[in-house]
């Protein structure tokens, strides 16, 4: 899609054209679904969240003022993440926030994560407990700081930090396990 086509596409979206919105759903659902899964409890919840997000995107497309597809997709992804998070985050963290103690961050060796394809790595992250997964994704994939995550999830920033350390540690274990399984299957 060249620049002119992007502008036209966004304009048609703003006008509420069915075909343009269909194109958005068919072309970019796989991208948005990745985000929805990272912040949802399970696949079904992720699909529900993505549906809700699409409805919100359609209702609020007037508020998107850019003319670039990249910015449109980033704006849509934020709505997907928010919609997914808004369902569960309060309940989850109300249970977890008090049981955390600070830990020391670990460094995962490139030999460990380098052996996985991107899709595999994503699947392993999906195996993390929901709370770990959300904080890990917000920090490592979306690039939020712990302070921002704390404000977003209504938790303390130390909680976010320690949750992330735990998530990373857990991910290291999962990757090691997954690696051994792969090796054993390979033998």
């Amino acid at each position: 899609m060249n620049k002119q086509e992007e502008i036209q596409f966004i304009k048609r979206l703003r006008n509420g054209e069915r075909d343009a919105f269909k194109h958005l759903v068919l072309s970019f659902s796989s991208l948005f679904f990745t985000k929805a899964k990272l912040y949802s409890r399970n696949k079904q919840d992720a699909e529900d969240s993505l549906q809700d997000a699409y409805v919100t995107i359609y209702q609020k497309i007037d508020q998107f003022h850019g003319n670039e597809l990249g910015k449109l997709l980033a704006w849509c992804q934020k709505i997907v993440i928010n919609t997914s998070l808004s369902k569960y985050r309060k309940k989850y963290y109300s249970h977890e926030r008090d049981e955390l103690t600070p830990q020391t961050d670990i460094e995962i060796s490139p030999e460990v994560y380098g052996q996985f394809e991107q899709a595999e790595l994503l699947s392993i992250i999906q195996l993390l407990p929901e709370g770990y997964r959300q904080i890990f994704s917000l920090f490592a994939i979306e690039g939020y700081s712990h302070k921002e995550i704390a404000e977003k999830l209504n938790i303390k920033s130390n909680t976010s930090r320690s949750q992330y350390i735990r998530a990373k540690s857990k991910l290291n274990v999962l990757m090691s396990e997954h690696s051994q399984i792969t090796l054993s299957h390979g033998i």
Binding site: L26, S27, S29, S30, F33, K37, L50, Q118, L122
Partner: peptide, 11 residues
């Protein structure tokens, strides 16, 4: 990263 989803069903 993209994930597999039935986009037609989603639509």
């Amino acid at each position: 990263q993209r994930s597999e989803i039935d986009a037609s069903k989603m639509w």
